[in-house]
């Protein structure tokens, strides 16, 4: 059943992606002012939404882990954090590539860019805590959960501060007027990127489950051998 669902989801992701690529490159009209490069918008914004959703999932899963101490919440947290970082990285790469022809430079210390960069760095630190932990597995999970909560509380504060810090650099449009075809392309892209995100999230959680199980078996075996040995 789970295998069937997995294949079904993969098939859905694939068809949604084909539809999205069609909508982005062929269906949606070329934007008047920015030209072709505006077509970056569809996947850029969808990835940004996915990364912020991922960071909220880290937050919720961290709270649940600390309350219930169930491994599945930790699996959700680590998988979301990794994918959040991956999608934030995509946003940080596609953003400058869009900015170069339009703003004339790759990078501006513009509020939303700065916000994404700082948020990205916080979750890179989160992954580092997990990767370089020296204590018990259980302790690492607790530390990660604490960090997952603290970092997410900081997200609105970063947003607020960065807006003050470079208010005169605000270049992202506050409100976007889109042609109806563009709106369609935007939502189709969001569904495609979002389902890809969910698909990868699921796979990453399954991988984590396998490695958790393996570690537990290894510990049990070590314990048995320790008892038998001299």
């Amino acid at each position: 059943m789970s295998r069937l669902a997995s294949t079904g989801l993969a098939f859905f992701v694939f068809s949604a992606m084909v539809a999205a690529l069609y909508a982005v490159f062929l269906y949606a009209p070329t934007e008047g002012q920015m030209g072709l490069v505006q077509r970056i918008f569809y996947f850029h914004v969808s990835s940004a939404i996915c990364s912020l959703v991922a960071f909220s999932l880290v937050f919720l899963a961290s709270i649940q882990y600390l309350r219930r101490r169930e491994e599945r919440w930790d699996r959700l947290a680590v998988a979301s954090a990794e994918l959040g970082v991956i999608f934030a990285l995509i946003v940080l790469i596609t953003g400058p590539l869009w900015a170069r022809p339009i703003w004339g430079v790759f990078w501006r210390w513009e509020p939303r860019l700065t916000f994404m960069l700082i948020t990205f760095l916080m979750y890179v630190a989160y992954l580092m805590v997990r990767a370089y932990a020296a204590g018990s597995v259980e302790q690492t999970r607790r530390f990660a959960a604490v960090l997952g909560i603290v970092a997410f509380v900081n997200v609105p504060l970063v947003h607020f501060s960065v807006n003050l810090w470079s208010a005169d650099q605000q270049l992202h449009p506050q409100k976007v007027e889109l042609a109806p075809e563009m709106v369609v392309a935007r939502y189709v892209s969001l569904v495609a990127v979002g389902s890809l995100f969910l698909f990868l999230l699921k796979r990453r959680m399954e991988l984590e489950l396998a490695s958790q199980t393996l570690n537990r078996i290894r510990q049990e075996l070590d314990g048995e051998r320790g008892d038998d040995g001299p």
């Binding site: 920015m34 072709l36 490069v37 970056i40 995509i90 590539l97 869009w98 170069r100 022809p101």
Partner: peptide
């Protein structure tokens, strides 16, 4: 412009 569009989706 096309180069940047291509680069972004490749990325």
């Amino acid at each position: 412009n096309l180069t940047y569009l291509f680069a972004a989706y490749t990325a």
